[in-house]
């Protein structure tokens, strides 16, 4: 148990990154999800490039690029900011596919009925399409949330003092107990992941209330 306290100390960094980059990822997912369906070709083009670049390269490469390569362009970002931006933009790109496909999965008849009731585009999105699409998005977002959590473990490689970093420090001081230290790291991650799964299930249940 002596290892758990320092590991949890490091976990705080991961959770901070998790929360902020999740918010960023949500923002990007919706912006790009709607952008992919925009009326204007330019908007569609720009979002497509964003999505394909971030989905087509690797998260760790993006992390390194933000941290090591950006300074060459005289953009200095802290390791923390690089982590949040890379994770947020990366999972935002994946999330945008969830948003886009779920918006498209709402039956066309719903849009037609809204037009027949003379609803404007914003009203129809807000009251009719999004609530239905949101419910379909939750499982996809849930999977991405777990992937994002796991992704936070990579920030160790850009010098952040997260749980992995703490673990490696502990390991060098207690080399004979390294299996135990690694095992604890895995267990802690699993507990957090499981808590997230329960949270997501709660949201899914809530979204399903009243509907057969």
């Amino acid at each position: 148990m002596q290892f758990v306290t320092p590991l949890l100390e490091g976990l705080k960094v991961n959770l901070e990154i998790l929360v902020v980059s999740t918010l960023l990822a949500f923002l990007m997912a919706f912006l790009a999800g709607f952008g992919r369906l925009a009326k204007y070709r330019v908007v569609r083009g720009i979002t497509l490039v964003y999505v394909e670049v971030f989905r087509g390269t690797s998260l760790l490469v993006q992390l390194f690029w933000m941290y090591f390569a950006l300074p060459a362009m005289h953009v200095n970002v802290s390791a923390m900011a690089a982590a949040i931006i890379a994770l947020g933009l990366n999972y935002g790109a994946y999330g945008s596919e969830v948003v886009r496909s779920c918006l498209l999965a709402v039956p066309k008849g719903q849009t037609e009925a809204s037009i027949a009731l003379n609803m404007t585009y914003p009203l129809r999105m807000r009251r009719i399409i999004l609530p239905q699409a949101w419910r379909m998005m939750l499982p996809g977002f849930g999977n991405l949330q777990i992937e994002l959590l796991k992704g936070t473990s990579l920030v160790y490689l850009i010098t952040l003092a997260d749980i992995t970093y703490k673990g490696m420090i502990l390991r060098s001081a207690n080399i004979s107990q390294q299996s135990l230290i690694f095992a604890w790291m895995l267990v802690i991650y699993f507990v957090v992941a499981y808590a997230l799964v329960l949270l997501i299930r709660y949201f899914e249940r809530r979204a399903a209330v009243g509907r057969g």
Partner: peptide
């Protein structure tokens, strides 16, 4: 579930650094 919900990098560390002691 355990393997799926925990990060690959820590799993790799475990296999690479801890398994030799076994």
């Amino acid at each position: 579930e355990f393997i799926r919900c925990t990060p690959l990098i820590i799993q790799l560390f475990f296999y690479y650094y801890a398994l030799p002691s076994f």
